[in-house]
Nucleic acid binder design. Sequence first.
DNA 1: AAATAAATTTAGGCAAATCTAAATTTATTT
DNA 2: AAATAAATTTAGATTTGCCTAAATTTATTT
Lengths: 221, 221
Amino acid sequence: MLNYTTSEENYIKAIYHLQKVDGMVTTNELAAELQSKPASITDMMKKLKAKKLLNYQPYQGFRLTADGTKVALGIIRRHRLWEFFLAEKLKFTWDEVHEVAEDLEHVSNKKLIDKLDEYLGFPRVDPHGDPIPDANGKIEISKKICITELPVNTISTVASVSDHSSEILELLEHKKIAIGTKVEVKKKFEFDNSMEIKINRQPAITISEQLAKNIFVNYGS
Amino acid sequence: MLNYTTSEENYIKAIYHLQKVDGMVTTNELAAELQSKPASITDMMKKLKAKKLLNYQPYQGFRLTADGTKVALGIIRRHRLWEFFLAEKLKFTWDEVHEVAEDLEHVSNKKLIDKLDEYLGFPRVDPHGDPIPDANGKIEISKKICITELPVNTISTVASVSDHSSEILELLEHKKIAIGTKVEVKKKFEFDNSMEIKINRQPAITISEQLAKNIFVNYGS
DNA sequence: AAATAAATTTAGGCAAATCTAAATTTATTT
DNA sequence: AAATAAATTTAGATTTGCCTAAATTTATTT
Ligand SMILES: [Mn+2]
Ligand SMILES: [Mn+2]
Ligand SMILES: [Mn+2]
Ligand SMILES: [Mn+2]
């Protein structure tokens, strides 16, 4: 497998994340995501197309080819394994891991990553609950729904949190909500979309709409 | 402290290593070390001088300033801590660690490195026996001499090995010589400069001149 | 002290990755 | 179907890092 520059890798990863939501990704969307300018995006899209990582027709948006997706999953694997390492071994807090992993992900030595994976005990998810692709690029897409969609009186497990900021972490720690926590929705209020939930069968607590929107649970369990 | 590019860091580190031997470093020397061309060196020397990391007068060679030395020690700290991590935790062999550390050393997040140091138990030397600078850039220069200089019938400890190749590692493992091994020189032969040494008080074995030249022991102990 | 050789720098160029501003294409309104 | 607006691409610069070939400086010989 070929090697890509840090810049190419950042573009590829961003496209992967955007197309999961969108299908086809547009120039302006990607420029916003990468805090860059549309002209720079067009330049790089030509380069990635030439390398057959991208399907791209001028003015028509783009998406990754099968090869491009494979590259993206490699980058995401490295990113999430390092995040796990930082949280688990170096005791970084949840909100600190992303920034450092953003650099470490670009050290692409296959043996390094596979041995790191083994050393960490082949973790399935990163500290934010996002799945870690395996050495073959296979990623476990577990069915998740937002806690706002969960029927009342159903016990479920927190699977991931989509916001990764220190502010949401502070709130979640205060409310004793973490990945793996058992939750049960007791009541939803139409007025402000706040809800009462039980954490590990303790007395019910209230969470705001803004918080609830970021909490995802395993569908069915 | 400012941040430097991967390229700048590689130049700074190379100058640091060369000037330990030489005092003043020359353009051609550095070009050879970095497998690059003299013209490229001159370009970068101007840049590093402008950043006050280097004392440099055209045609007169160069050496690091106090600031430049501090930067170099930071890079060497990262490099050797990662080498230690790879050998100790990921079970890389001695000859494999350098190449990977060459990339990891450029991820320069202070907290990452200080936490890694702590996680590893503040190791003093890397897998090759070279000292690891502490968080303040202090490096322990232990007095070492080549085993060829060691008087006969003096027991000493292997402190470092200057060649880092898989070939020398194979030979050293076969002869059961590692960092920390107790050695005693029994006999030196003038014909081929080979010598007989005892390892951990076992029966004497023979080592060649080429091998002996790469083995350094603590002076006095 | 010239002449020659060696080391170093300068001049000029190229590729990657970015940007601003202008031109072009596509989408949306009248 | 024009006209207008929005999105996108192209043109032309800039910076970093590297190169080759030519010019210059320093070192070494006769
Ligand atoms: Mn990144
Ligand atoms: Mn994550
Ligand atoms: Mn390096
Ligand atoms: Mn080393």
